[in-house]
């Protein structure tokens, strides 16, 4: 059986997920994710030795089209949705910080 998630583990997953969570949310997700993961342990009833993983329902690989150039989306149309723009670029805050944001 899986151990219940600690608040530190949930905080770590939130950081990996790029989600800033409140202490209340951390506590709530610790309980709920532990319950869901406990239920996932049901899969351990099955012996899957030698079973090929199935990542996708279709057996298709390397679907290619003719290598002919086509126009992409117009830059202006794409930037219309940007929260902040500095044509022809997306504008972001300074990238170099202490990195502890999440």
């Amino acid at each position: 059986m899986s151990e219940p998630l600690t608040h530190d583990q949930v905080q770590h997953v939130a950081k990996l997920s790029r989600l800033r969570l409140s202490a209340d949310e951390i506590a709530q997700y610790a309980d709920q994710l532990s319950a869901v993961l406990g239920y996932m342990d049901k899969l351990n009833e099955l012996d899957v030795t030698g079973v090929e993983p199935m990542a996708h329902p279709l057996d298709v690989t390397n679907v290619l089209r003719e290598d002919e150039p086509v126009d992409g989306l117009p830059v202006d149309a794409v930037l219309d949705n940007a929260p902040a723009r500095d044509d022809p670029f997306f504008r972001v805050p300074k990238v170099i910080g202490d990195g502890s944001g999440a």
């Binding site: 805050p93 910080g97 202490d98 990195g99 502890s100 944001g101 999440a102």
Partner: peptide
């Protein structure tokens, strides 16, 4: 946001 990571997370 404080920085880029903070922008994402918030």
């Amino acid at each position: 946001p404080d920085d880029l990571i903070d922008l994402y997370s918030k």
